[in-house]
Nucleic acid binder design. Sequence first.
DNA 1: AGTATTTGACCCTG
DNA 2: CAGGGTCAAATACT
Length: 238
Amino acid sequence: MEDATATTLATELDGLLAMARELEARVGADQGVPGAARELCAALAASVDRAVRLAGRSGNAGGRASVNGQRRSGRKAAAAKVRTQVRVASMQDLGPLDDGLSWRKYGQKDILGATYPRSYFRCTHRHTQGCAATKQVQRATADPLLFDVVYHGAHTCAQTAVLAGMEQQQPPAAFGQEPQSPPEEVQWPAEPVTPFSFPSCCHLTGSYGYAAAGGGLGVDMELEDQLDELFLDVSGIF
DNA sequence: AGTATTTGACCCTG
DNA sequence: CAGGGTCAAATACT
């Protein structure tokens, strides 16, 4: 009975942890970020990490269920859903849309009630490494400059390993010790200062009301609430 | 030539 | 039944 819930929770936490690490990495790489923000991000990552441990991945919280050859037939436990709102200064697809990972657009749908269509992205290495991460990007109806980015699932590809690993205490020379050790390329756009394309044109938005979402995004999760608070907090510091 | 994007159709869920 | 998500073929771009 509670197995499904536990599994879902573990999956959610997994996604949270990934995002926390990413956020921490971003903040840590940015020189213009106040120390308080970094501290908060570090605390966030630590807290999430602790939560993950507390949850105990006794279930099969490894990741995706099973990749059947045909269509998905029993998508029971929803994958981790993490919503992020990002505002960009220009309508170009830079900054928040490029979170350091390789995304491939696989679809676009016009959403009822929304002015702008929703784009569907999935990890480029899905066929290569079985990375089941997907994300949806949609412009807010009210603010065309405001993007709603929803992450589904967690990255299992090499890029995520590097992304999460570079922020760990592991020395930069230990890159060859990835858990999965993919023989593929593990290289980035090679940003000297900011590994993440986070130029000075994008900011996390503090205004996080549902009014901007056009009613299309209804993620009823307590985790999201907490995320909202966290992002609000971080945004306030920025 | 290979890869990423676009676009329409199909299928599943609420 | 309507809306939303994914697939797959075609097209565009590098």
